[in-house]
């Protein structure tokens, strides 16, 4: 598995992931949620986001099915999704328990991650 280059400022995010929780950078000044980034809110330019756990609900924004092997750690076929969380941010993740042929844009999903990456979601019937 490729190595993450963890920014020390993002360490709490990865520590929480190891516990199965997805933290978002929440800007109390304007109420915006983002994935960890530069630490500056692009809406109000505040530099003081605080960590807040995502509710875990989202929908599939887009997805791919890799058919040609590009890396020895990833056996094809495998799918990669971008999930739009209900809080707003879009995150690259895996959808488990769903065959690539059955993935649809707009499909409701819920966080189902374990102690290791990749970040996983499961289909949710809402």
């Amino acid at each position: 598995m490729a190595d993450l280059a963890i920014d020390p400022a993002h360490q709490p995010f990865y520590d929480a992931l190891a516990d199965g929780r997805l933290l978002l950078a929440f800007c109390a000044a304007c109420g915006r949620h983002d994935l960890p980034g530069t630490g500056t809110c692009p809406v109000c330019l505040s530099h003081d986001p605080r960590w807040e756990a995502a509710g875990g609900a989202g929908t599939v924004f887009s997805f791919l099915v890799f058919r040609r092997p590009l890396h020895p750690d990833f056996e094809v076929p495998y799918s990669v999704c971008v999930v739009e969380l209900d809080e707003g941010p879009r995150v690259v993740a895996w959808l488990v328990g769903v065959e690539p042929e059955d993935i649809e844009v707009g499909m409701p999903v819920h966080l189902s991650t374990g102690p290791t990456l990749p970040l996983r979601f499961r289909r949710e019937d809402r």
Partner: peptide, 25 residues
């Protein structure tokens, strides 16, 4: 996004992947 290494950890390789996500939309 802005998490270095996140894409590779999820097997998201190549500009074709990035454009493919857009094309799917």
């Amino acid at each position: 996004g802005e998490l270095p290494g996140w894409e590779a950890t999820h097997g998201l390789f190549g500009a074709h992947a990035a454009y493919g996500l857009a094309a799917r939309r």
